[in-house]
Simulated scan of single mutants.
Amino acid sequence: MKVRQPGFDFASIRPHWAPVREFAQSYNAFSTVPAHIEPYLVKVMMRVKDELGEEHQALRENIEIFNKQEVQHCKQHVAFNKMLYKLGYAGMQDLEKPYRDDYASFLANRSLRFNVAYCEGFEAMGSAAGQVFFEELEDYLEGADQEAVDLWKWHLAEEFEHREVCFQAYKALFGSGPFAYFYRVWAFIFAVKHIGTHTARVAAYLNGVDRESMTPEERERSIERQKTLKAKISKASRKRLLKVLSPFYNPGKMIPSPGMAALLARFG
């Protein structure tokens, strides 16, 4: 693990940065997640670090790197999202506010166990999303704007790189017995539903804006492309995410996707 500071320039990126615009809008919707979840992750893991004893010094050091990586993810996606607001999708911000407020509520009203387990659930989603992006979506990435592709590959490769930090933090604080296992699985399912509901709303808004200027025939084709994309990503994600439900799940044993190491080497 290491901290990287890529110098992305989003000034010339189009909202439809991939040939299949519904694919681009799907990931544009996902881009609202790191803008708000990453600051939350950092705050939770700072609390974790304060709770860990000296016997967990290595984990404490990894949390430092983890937090710095997440700050970079937030910074880059906030810049990307501002480009989307300026290019006709300012309504995204109305959908982001309740999502952002959820994290403030979690920090104020939920237990540390819940917050750490939720973070681990998101990180499990992130590592699976990285595998899907690197291994399953070549057809959608062909001909896409390189800056946007690099943003997602860098981000998701780092998500995979630090995939076990929250898992180890949860284990260190709350153990690995039956209750810890079932609570982790429950929080994972909660996180999947919570994040998935938000991104679906944003994607619906983005595609809705696009479809306002389409003919009925174009709109039907757009809806069909979105259904095909959703089915492909759901199938590719499901077979990876089901592993998270196992009592023997250990993200540290997962093997990086081909191309992840080379991509990260480009950014230092």
Rank of each mutant, 00 (worst) to 15 (best):
Q5V: 11
P6Y: 11
G7W: 04
D9F: 02
D9H: 04
D9N: 14
F10K: 08
S12I: 05
R21T: 13
S26F: 14
S26I: 01
N28Q: 11
A29R: 07
S31E: 08
S31I: 06
T32I: 10
I37H: 00
E38P: 13
P39A: 13
L41G: 03
K43E: 13
K43P: 00
M45Q: 09
M46W: 06
R47W: 05
R47Y: 03
V48Q: 11
V48P: 03
L52H: 07
G53N: 04
G53V: 07
E54R: 09
H56Q: 09
H56V: 01
H56P: 00
H56K: 06
H56R: 10
Q57P: 00
A58T: 05
A58W: 04
L59F: 05
I65H: 03
F66Y: 14
N67L: 08
Q69N: 04
Q69R: 04
H73K: 05
K75V: 03
N81S: 06
M83S: 07
M83N: 11
K86M: 04
K86V: 01
G88W: 10
Y89Q: 05
M92K: 09
Q93P: 03
D94A: 13
L95I: 07
E96A: 12
D101N: 08
D102K: 10
Y103V: 07
Y103L: 12
F106L: 13
A108W: 05
N109Y: 11
S111P: 11
R113N: 09
F114R: 09
C119W: 00
E123V: 14
M125K: 06
M125V: 13
M125Y: 13
G126L: 14
S127A: 08
A128V: 15
A129E: 01
G130S: 12
F133P: 02
F134Y: 15
E135L: 14
L137G: 09
E138Y: 12
D139S: 15
L141H: 15
L141K: 15
G143I: 08
D145K: 05
A148K: 06
L151D: 02
K153C: 06
W154M: 04
W154A: 05
H155D: 02
L156M: 08
E158V: 01
F160V: 04
H162N: 01
E164V: 00
C166Y: 03
F174M: 03
S176A: 09
S176V: 01
G177K: 05
Y183L: 10
A187E: 07
A187H: 08
G196E: 13
T197W: 13
R201A: 15
V202M: 12
Y205M: 14
L206R: 13
V209I: 15
P216N: 08
E218R: 09
R219Q: 14
R219Y: 04
E220M: 10
E220F: 06
E224R: 14
E224S: 11
K227D: 07
I233L: 15
K235D: 14
A236I: 10
A236T: 09
R238N: 13
K239C: 00
K239P: 00
L242Q: 14
L245G: 10
P247D: 14
M254F: 04
I255G: 00
S257M: 14
M260Y: 07
M260V: 12
A261S: 09
A265C: 02
G268K: 11
